[in-house]
Amino acid sequence: MNSQTKSQFIAVASITSELSAVMVVAKEISLAAANAKAIAFRAGDKAKGFQPITDFINELAKETIELVTNINVYALLLYRLTVNEYRRTAAYNRFEQVAKLATGASYADSMQEPISHAKTMMQDCQRQFKRDVTQLLGQLEAVMHHARAARVIAANSRIEASQAGEYLQSLQAVAESVDKAAHTIHDNVQRCRIALSIYRNS
């Protein structure tokens, strides 16, 4: 296995691991939202501005979870494609070796067909991989967009929390945890994108 293939395997595997962390964090946000909703309900008028925010946070978390679930399916396809490309490339290289070793053999020419077929299959895999990576990068971009939105909401929540009297501390804690979670998601997804970006369609 050459280093290009190796790093491709690693890049694809790293998506799955980064994303499973994103999933955990997104679930945390969703929990924080439920928690905030309960507090806001108890706070009544004092946390009036906070209530729609909690719904929004919850929505955002749900969407993130959904997106990541889809991306995981995609990442599995990408992994299969990488395995396939590896197989095709290995066969192509061996076939070239056969042609070299068969110089002078009566039927050496008959090797041309399998070689050109193997080459086409290998190049198809490479093209498909690039196409899929480009698409996956788009989906990852959507997750980052959600994470950025969550951070803006967290900032708004802090302002709203300051009006909430004795509930200030608990609502501020909610805002804090949403912010932290969004930050983690942003970082993880960014790492995935960097790992993949060298394979995108240029």
Partner: peptide, 13 residues
């Protein structure tokens, strides 16, 4: 590879 190359002395693919 050596095996397939050797077979090509006797039969086309």
């Amino acid at each position: 590879a050596p095996m397939m190359a050797a077979v090509l002395h006797h039969a086309p693919v």
